[in-house]
Lab assay of single mutants.
Amino acid sequence: IRLYEREDYRGQMIEFTEDCSCLQDRFRFNEIHSLNVLEGSWVLYELSNYRGRQYLLMPGDYRRYQDWGATNARVGSLRRV
């Protein structure tokens, strides 16, 4: 999964292949505005340590956080399923 700091895949990008319990420890931002799921399925959590609202993401492109059903861009952790 590739996470981007801004909409439309702009700004700083980070790629994950494994679970991350605290996004801010690995990426200086806690807001993700766009992403690409390259393979497999992922769950994004609004808070760190896999807490808060959850969003199940299938392979595909998500140009804005609204595309995955979120009401804001906050992402605290993520897990591959």
Rank of each mutant, 00 (worst) to 15 (best):
Y65R: 12
M13H: 10
R53V: 06
R51Q: 04
S34I: 00
M58C: 13
M13A: 13
L57V: 12
E5H: 03
L47G: 08
S77W: 00
G76R: 11
V37D: 15
F16S: 11
D19Y: 03
G76D: 06
Q24M: 15
G60W: 04
C20P: 01
Q24I: 07
L38N: 15
A73M: 15
R10H: 02
G60D: 06
V37G: 02
G52D: 01
S77A: 03
G11H: 01
S48M: 03
A73P: 03
E15Q: 04
M13G: 10
R64K: 02
C20E: 14
Q54H: 04
E15N: 15
S41V: 04
E46H: 03
R28Q: 14
G60Y: 03
D67Q: 06
R6S: 09
Y50E: 01
R79A: 14
R53T: 10
L3A: 05
R53I: 03
M58R: 08
Q54S: 10
S34V: 00
L23T: 10
W42H: 02
L57Y: 04
Q24Y: 07
R51A: 08
S41A: 02
E46L: 01
C20L: 09
N36Y: 05
C20V: 06
E39H: 15
R79D: 01
G76A: 10
F29N: 06
E31H: 12
L56T: 14
L35I: 15
V81A: 05
Y45R: 01
M58S: 12
G76V: 03
D67P: 03
L57K: 03
T17A: 03
D25R: 07
G40N: 02
E7N: 01
G52F: 01
I1V: 05
S48Y: 03
V43D: 09
G69S: 08
Y62S: 10
G76T: 05
R63D: 14
Y45C: 02
Y50W: 02
R26N: 11
Y45L: 01
N30I: 15
Q54Y: 04
Y55E: 15
G76Q: 08
I1F: 01
D25A: 10
G11L: 02
G76E: 10
L3V: 13
R6Y: 05
R51I: 02
G52M: 01
L23D: 14
T17R: 13
I14S: 14
N72C: 06
N36I: 07
L56C: 12
G11R: 01
D67L: 06
Y9L: 07
R10C: 12
R79V: 05
L44H: 01
R51N: 15
G69M: 15
V81D: 06
W68E: 02
L44P: 00
G76N: 04
M13S: 12
R64N: 15
G69N: 09
C22P: 05
R74P: 10
E46P: 03
I32P: 09
S48V: 03
R79K: 07
D8P: 11
R28P: 08
Y50T: 00
R53E: 07
